[in-house]
């Protein structure tokens, strides 16, 4: 799953550490989310969406084909 987290964070001029503190997760989690190595839980996704005041689907982009390729 792709996401626009890094882009949105940079747009707002926030550091990874600051975003991590706001979302109450570790900085490493933010890094992993931005790199696409880790997909957040629905709770964290909602927290992120609320923070950026955007719908979840505008931040996290679900691509069925990519997911299927990963599974294969």
């Amino acid at each position: 799953m792709k996401n626009r987290l890094e882009e949105l964070r940079k747009q707002r001029g926030i550091k990874q550490e600051e975003l991590a503190a706001i979302l109450e997760v570790s900085r490493q989690t933010i890094g992993s989310l931005e790199n696409g190595r880790y997909n957040p839980s629905i709770l964290l996704a909602f927290k992120i969406a609320r923070f950026f005041d955007m719908p979840i689907e505008d931040i996290f982009i679900y691509e069925e084909e990519t997911e299927r390729e990963k599974e294969e």
Partner: peptide, 11 residues
């Protein structure tokens, strides 16, 4: 607490 409760760390 944040470090322990972090969902990625738990996973």
């Amino acid at each position: 607490k944040v470090e322990v409760m972090d969902e990625r760390n738990i996973a």
